[in-house]
């Protein structure tokens, strides 16, 4: 599954990050790597982007950019 259908309060685990280049590198640099646990904190008032907790800090990313992250619900 991907980020599109997540709700605030969901917790997920990263299985794989697809693609390559700037976007993937940026996502991984910020600490989203294989096996990382992500908690969805909230969704912006207009429906996008989402705010997540990862490795103990808050990160916001667009659903569209997060499409390359393969996740499973915990």
């Amino acid at each position: 599954m991907t980020f599109k259908n997540l709700k605030a309060g969901d917790s997920v685990r990263v299985m794989k990050i697809n693609g390559q280049g700037a976007l993937k590198r940026r996502i991984m640099d910020m600490g989203i790597t294989k096996g990382t646990e992500i908690h969805v904190r909230k969704i912006a008032p207009l429906g996008d982007p989402v705010e997540v907790t990862v490795r103990g800090y808050e990160l916001s990313l667009r659903k569209e950019d997060a499409e390359i992250i393969e996740i499973i619900k915990l």
Partner: peptide, 12 residues
């Protein structure tokens, strides 16, 4: 060209 992804820290 390279579309800057919006991946931003929300500091406390």
């Amino acid at each position: 060209g390279d579309v800057a992804p919006f991946i931003m820290e929300l500091p406390p």
